[in-house]
Design a protein around this nucleic acid. Sequence first.
DNA 1: GCCTGTGAAGCTATTCACAGCT
DNA 2: AGCTGTGAATAGCTTCACAGGC
Lengths: 229, 229
Amino acid sequence: MPEKTATISAKVVARLSLYRRLLASEAAGGARHIYSHQLATRAGVSAEQVRRDMMAVGYNGTPIRGYCIAELMNCIDGLLDAAQGQNAAIVGLGNLGRAITVYSAGRWPKLSIVAAFDHDPAKVGQVINGCTCYQDADIPRIVAERNIRVAIVAVPASEAQKVADSLVEAGVKGILNFAPARLRVPPDVYVENMDVAVSLEKVAYFARQAPVRKAAAGAREMGSEDAIQ
Amino acid sequence: MPEKTATISAKVVARLSLYRRLLASEAAGGARHIYSHQLATRAGVSAEQVRRDMMAVGYNGTPIRGYCIAELMNCIDGLLDAAQGQNAAIVGLGNLGRAITVYSAGRWPKLSIVAAFDHDPAKVGQVINGCTCYQDADIPRIVAERNIRVAIVAVPASEAQKVADSLVEAGVKGILNFAPARLRVPPDVYVENMDVAVSLEKVAYFARQAPVRKAAAGAREMGSEDAIQ
DNA sequence: GCCTGTGAAGCTATTCACAGCT
DNA sequence: AGCTGTGAATAGCTTCACAGGC
């Protein structure tokens, strides 16, 4: 088995993360086994999709009881979690940064936000759920000291690139970017954009495309989805 | 009657939204025209991708100067914006809800968050950037009164489904969901999940793959839509 | 040259369909 | 019966490659 680990696609990783959370909730409810179609329903995907993903993780269920929840969770843990744990940092302690920091605290055994950074000196020294806020100028030092490879960027768009540069320079290899800006990073750095503006416009667009209910006699804004161009 | 324009795919809509923002910034900088490769660089996609998207919107540039920024923006506006404007609501005024509300205020001419809801009576009556907070029990009334079709869910996972149900019941057709839960909604309601936990685990995973990854493969992804569903 | 627009090819992701198991 | 695992087919998305224009 000298074969190198085939890297799993981003979509599969995302679903595995979701499955894991759903499985934990099932386990907490006392369930021991689960069928692909059950997990699929909870995740909002098809049963075949779930089974394909099981192929990707290399876990086999049995036709008789489906998947053993505990085993499957272990299997997913083995793929998604760093064996020795990972440290993360967050830059920007506005409302958004605080929300994420609070939400993340203690949520993962193998991944912790261990440092926060902000430009505002008034925030430096604050401690949120055990995570200390440092001056943003200290990014290079702290990131190196704590061996931080994962960062969350929650600063205004105008500062995002600058922040990303210093993070990357300090050794960060993955960035979760909430700033409404596209970051330029070297090809070995993974960036995931959480662009609220884009997503909201998308939702607004598809909300308008929603089929008009037949029963409603007086739907009033019939013209609105007429296409442009 | 003329057949309605084939609905544009979610990915294209997401990129158009991004293009529009980038174009606005270019226009603010005094530019009049832009080439596909320039827009592509700013958006982090390929030039061919940009040209394909132009086909989707039905806008033509010229080989000599590329795309006229003003015309292109108008064209995208015509596709993404509701002619008569859209009202949105946000449920949950914790750190995250406040961050989004503040960020969104006045950002779009054709889309506004006109109401907020929270379970906590202490928050009811607060006004954030002109957006009043109501008791969550008032969702049906206010959503109907203000003709709200778009909603942002920023409540804890345990309450998300309940909130979604009342929103949908009141007529909402699109939901941007920040709660780490999968919502069950009728098929005519569009849901976009912004799952921070999933995205952060994804980033952590690929940050670890970084040393092994081939340098040639740039991380190109759009938004969070490649999540599940 | 360097641009756009686009058929065709290439990839990736998802679903279909069914063999095999218990 | 109902399940899993998976080849095959399908659908969707992105890139290639090149024609056509200035």
